[in-house]
Nucleic acid binder design. Structure first.
Lengths: 214, 214
DNA sequence: CTCATTTAGTGATGCCTATCACACAGATCT
DNA sequence: AGATCTGTGTGATAGGCATCACTAAATGAG
């Protein structure tokens, strides 16, 4: 586990004492694709660091519709969750494993205590907030300016990064939900991408063609 | 100034030593409406706490278009700026005073030093990040689901909170820019709101009618 | 007071996408 | 093999908003 940590969270690595403390006090959890890791309204007793896989973080708005906020992949953690922990409030977001995922679970008390004790930890947490903030800015940017076809292509290329065979396993409906669009529109645009030979459509599965993955 | 601080930042108030330290090491700056407080690419040597007024924070995307991120009013600070300070990077955002504004400027070194020294300060900074993150989530939500008329109404009601005479001083073009819409569309929708007797349109000025400000 | 500049109002046109309404095909079950 | 789902393909329709092309007020500068 020390190697995990050092590879994925290089900011923490220099502080051997911290690394050992993390190892001593946290546990590793393997999560199967599709599992809900955190749900709305639940209390959270641990800070999750994503080691491997892909986690989708989203939020339900007042009308009950869900907005995709961002994806978390290896080497990152969810700032929104972190803040929930810190102020002991219920989660405002939902996190789902979109691929088989491994996380390190750090008990709340430890995460809290380390804030005062380890500068490296504090900076790590700050930089995670920072990264999420900028991920959100990107999301805003896309929503504000991109048309659906562009959003779709971005979505596919981002997701394919976290699979091994250039293939994203989703239905058109799921994509539509993530992009706040209608299934029909997604289907039609996918067909267009297929005609452009950028992707191959299979049932429940989109394959990005080689030359495009550069 | 101690009173300012205690009123606007109640989280900090209990720590008298911190309050005194802030007073000793920071300065107050009065900013005229329209002034650019922070610009893209500039280095920032102080953390600004907004005491009074309204500050618009935005970002330029790769195509040179600007996205409105959020407004800051009394009692808040800009997380994006804060993180710029902390890692000594150039600003990725631009901040403009939309009303006459007063800020407390805290030197970078002090803000940094206090992170280790004062729990209250640390929690304050964390909660500011948290608040900005959720402001961004709201922005995303509106972009994803609201139609232009709703966005416009939200925009007006939010902005009118920070003026005294139920009047927002903006041109249709400015609103259009902030909402990523066309001026014509904004003009037409404003006219509709005027017909519904929710607002009164003046040149460079929108007046929200009494009964609506509840 | 006039002319130039900003700011606003209005119609016409067209694109994008939501929505409705089905047809169809692969998967799964019985 | 037939019946039932679930995921897709397709056309028709309609609404929202961008864009273009002007006109018309309001303001400011000389």
């Amino acid at each position: 586990m020390q190697q995990f940590l050092k590879d994925l969270f290089p900011e923490l690595a220099p502080d051997q004492e911290l690394i050992e403390e993390i190892e001593r006090r946290s546990s590793v959890r393997e999560i199967e694709k599709g599992t809900t890791i955190i749900d709305y309204g639940s209390y959270i007793h641990f800070v999750p660091l994503v080691v491997k896989g892909l986690v989708k973080v989203m939020r339900e708005n007042s009308d009950g519709k869900e907005v995709l906020l961002y994806f978390l992949s290896g080497g990152s953690t969810c700032a929104a969750t972190f803040s929930c922990c810190m102020v002991r409030k219920r989660s405002e977001v939902k996190a789902i494993a979109e691929e088989d995922t491994t996380i390190i679970m750090i008990p709340l008390e430890a995460a809290d205590e380390w804030m005062g004790k380890y500068t490296k930890w504090r900076n790590f947490v700050m930089s995670m907030y920072d990264q999420r903030l900028f991920a959100m800015i990107d999301t805003v940017d896309k929503l504000a300016f991109s048309k659906l076809d562009e959003k779709l292509w971005d979505y596919l290329t981002e997701r394919v990064l976290y699979t091994d065979n250039h293939t994203v396993e989703v239905s058109h409906q799921e994509i539509a939900d993530d992009l706040n669009a209608s299934r029909e529109a997604i289907s039609r645009l996918l067909k267009k991408l297929e005609n452009q030979e950028k992707i191959k459509i299979h049932r429940n599965k989109i394959e990005l063609l080689e030359q495009q993955v550069t």
